[in-house]
Write a protein that binds this DNA or RNA. Structure first.
Lengths: 230, 230
DNA sequence: TTTTTAACTTGCGCCAGCGCAAAGACAAAA
DNA sequence: TTTTGTCTTTGCGCTGGCGCAAGTTAAAAA
């Protein structure tokens, strides 16, 4: 566990003396499947490092539609804005996709730690920067790419994050519904279903209930980069 | 000028001793209309505070299409990621929309300043956080709103940023082409043109060449929030 | 095993918005 | 004043993708 925190994006490169304080000031927090670590708009009082499980960052629109922003795996940081004024609200909701455990630090401790060890601030900024880049990429995709390309891109990304080599190709190694994919790529589950079926016909993927396996990654990449149109 | 830096989002709340160093370490930088402060992907070597002019942050897609991310006014900070490892590339391009002047600080000085004065780091994070929130809002809009709503929202935002009261209503006080609006709202200049004309027919706006004046702000808000469909 | 629940597929109709082309309207330069 | 370049409008055709409804499959619960 210490190992995981040491490698976490927020506390990497922290000197061992300060690191001891990091360990002292954390609060463990467990949330079961479909529960929430925090909701969009809540006062940003804690930053989290995920220890085990999977957590989905999402937004909910006024009319109830969901947008999935990202899926987190152990070692990743979320709610990092807590280092700022806790009057800021979290910009998104963090929901556990399975029983999950995380460590939490509150604003006061975070700031104290950051003052002792500037690299914590830099790490937090690095995190935010990475996220900004990702959001911009996604925005670009939403504006310029067809739905098909966006789905291809999401699958490639999930595969690189959760891919597991099996005999038929690369399996995305956790239950993933058509609706999940739709919420990540900004479309509907119907369109996702149709697209995946078409790809299966072409032998590019193999699909099942809550399961996607990529047989021809190269074909998907071509699609994502718009090198080929169907 | 000092006043402007004092109030700038990056250096506000900086103690007067460190502030003196802020002033010492800056480099003035002028760029004329259509010129660039930096391009997406360039090594992020400097952070800027705009003194005068207007600067557009944009992305260019592989096929040449532009996406406008935001428009900056004097006092605003851009290129703030320079505080991180300069190996990071700027996530977007900064182009002057008119002759513009800014002050720049390089990574080395920024870091030194941030170490002396933690509030600089906090300010930088605050900036990034505000930007993240904005990007998420925009992503939500792209996924869930109709083009009409998105245009309405962009106009409201521009009006709140640059609005000038005139007799007919609130004028967006700088030359703004249909193409500009399209790049901000993720659509085409044709659709923008049609939409604005329709709104003019309804008396909601008054438009001219590179000019938009909002006569019934309330009507636009209703549209943006989808309280009414045409 | 049967039942229930949730995920998925598929056909069909529809329309918002795109893309193009051609023409019109300004503004600045010559 | 005329010219030139840029910005804008508008008609027309087209289609990607949405939305719904009805049916199918598969897993989980009873």
């Amino acid at each position: 566990m210490q190992e995981l925190i040491r490698q976490s994006s927020l506390f990497k490169d922290v000197g061992s003396d300060v690191f001891a304080q990091v360990l002292e000031t954390c609060i463990p927090r467990s949330v079961e499947e479909d529960g929430f670590f925090f909701m969009q708009g809540d006062a940003a009082s804690h930053a989290f490092v995920l220890l085990e499980g999977r957590v989905k960052m999402l937004q909910i629109t006024p009319n109830g539609q969901q947008i999935t922003l990202r899926i987190l795996t152990p070692g990743q940081t979320y709610g990092g804005i807590a280092i700022l004024n806790p009057l800021e609200g979290y910009p998104a909701t963090a929901q556990a996709m399975e029983n999950s455990t995380a460590l939490a630090w509150d604003t006061a401790h975070l700031r104290k730690l950051a003052e002792m060890e500037p690299s914590i601030s830099l790490n937090a900024m690095q995190l935010m920067h990475a996220y900004i880049t990702e959001l911009q990429e996604r925005q670009k995709a939403l504006v310029t790419d067809r739905v098909e390309q966006r789905i291809a891109r999401i699958l490639m990304k999930l595969a690189s994050q959760y891919g597991k080599k099996v005999e038929e190709g690369v399996l995305i190694n956790f239950p993933l519904t058509r609706k999940d994919i739709a919420e990540m790529s900004g479309t509907t589950l119907f369109t996702v279903s149709r697209t995946l079926k078409e790809w299966e016909r072409q032998g590019m993927v193999k699909i099942g209930r809550e399961k996607v396996c990529i047989c021809k990654p190269h074909g998907l990449v071509s699609l994502a980069d718009d090198l080929v149109r169907r």
